[in-house]
Amino acid sequence: MHPTAEWLKNWEAKRELTLAPNDLEKYFTDKEIGEVEIDQINLGEISLPSGKIFVNDPLGEYLAMDKDPYFIETPKGNFPVSASIVKFEDDGDVENLIGCVKIAFTNEKPVRYEEAMKGIELIEELQEGEYFGFAIESGLTTIVDSEAKESFVKFIDEFESKGNDVNLYDDYFNDLFVANAKNNPKYQSEEGDWLNWTIPGTEFKTPIFQAGFGEGVYPAYFGYNEKGEVVSFYIQFIDAELEDSDDDDEWL
C-alpha cells in the first residue's frame, strides 16, 4: 500500500526526527566505537528482484502477516550483506553480538540515514529520540524482497502443514545454522548466529541472523548520498556509542 498524500505530508514535516543518532557506516569501517571493540563479517548476498523489502521475524506467522514493505524502494539485483560484530562483556564473559547489519548498493558513504518506513506509521505522533522499528520475538531477523517473500511464506506453510509437532526452527533451520557455524566459525556460537539461505525451489538468497540481544524492537535505516539516492540499508541492533555497557537496555 502506497502512503497517502496526508501521510507523506506529515512525514516531510517530521523527517528530521527520523534521522539515525549515529554514523552507521562506522560499524563497517572502524574496529572500535568509543571503548567498544567491533569487527565485520560477510554474510553473503541478498536477492532483491523487486526492490521492495521487508524486515521481520522469520519464524511463526509474523512474516506472513506483514503486508507492507518499506515504501522507499532499493536498487534491484543481488547485493552484499555484512554484519558488524560488537564485543559485549558481561561479568567477565565476552559475547560476540551482531550489532548492525548492512546491505551495500554502492561503495558510497551515506551523508544521511533515515528510518525505513512503511507509510502506515502514526508519523504525526513521532517525538525526538523515538523510532518505530520492527518487532522480533524469536530472536531472529530476516530481510526479504517482496517477490521472494511469497516463496518464503509458501515454504513455511508447506513445511508446517506436515503435522502439529513440526517446528520450523528445530526441524529445519537448526541444522542449517549449525552447519554454517562449522563452515564459517568466526564470531559464531556452535548453534550458529547467521545463515545465508536460498529459499527452496528458487534462486532467492535471503539472510537470517540473530538480532542483537534478541527479542525487542529495532530500527532500520536507508543511507542516502548527496543526490538523495539510496546507497545502503542498515539495521541497528546495538548502539555501541552508549557508554553504559552494564545495562543492556541502554544499548538498544
Rank of each mutant, 00 (worst) to 15 (best):
P75D: 06
D246I: 13
F54M: 01
L252D: 08
A104Y: 14
A181R: 04
L24V: 02
V94L: 15
P185K: 07
K118I: 04
F233M: 12
K182Q: 11
T141W: 06
D239P: 04
W11C: 05
D145I: 02
F233T: 00
E147S: 09
V178T: 06
E137L: 13
S47H: 10
T74Q: 11
F54S: 03
P219R: 06
F213N: 03
P58Q: 07
Y187E: 00
L168W: 05
I156A: 05
W251D: 09
S232R: 05
Q188C: 05
Q210D: 06
D90G: 00
L43M: 15
E160K: 07
T202F: 05
P49N: 10
W11L: 05
V36H: 07
Y234F: 15
E114P: 00
N174M: 09
N10L: 12
E124V: 07
Y218W: 10
P110W: 15
E190V: 08
E215R: 08
L97Y: 11
F134Q: 01
T4E: 01
L59V: 07
E16F: 11
I41P: 02
T141L: 03
N96G: 00
A211C: 01
T206Y: 08
F233L: 10
W251F: 15
F152N: 01
K205Y: 04
F213C: 02
L43D: 06
G99C: 05
C100I: 11
F233Q: 00
P75H: 12
L242T: 13
I85W: 13
Q210A: 09
S245V: 15
G192D: 04
D165Q: 10
G77F: 13
Y187I: 02
G133E: 09
P185M: 01
G163I: 03
A83S: 08
A148N: 00
E125H: 11
N56C: 15
C100V: 04
D193Y: 01
D91A: 15
E158Q: 11
E190F: 13
I46N: 02
Y62V: 01
W197L: 03
A5C: 07
A211P: 01
S151K: 14
E6P: 00
D170M: 10
K182V: 09
D93N: 14
D175I: 12
K118F: 06
N225H: 04
D171N: 12
N107R: 07
F152T: 00
E137I: 11
I33E: 04
I41R: 08
V231N: 10
E250G: 12
K76G: 06
S189R: 15
E115A: 04
A20L: 05
I120C: 05
D30M: 13
K52Y: 14
W7N: 02
F237K: 00
V55Y: 12
A64R: 13
E35K: 10
E160H: 03
A181E: 03
E226N: 06
I85Q: 10
K149D: 01
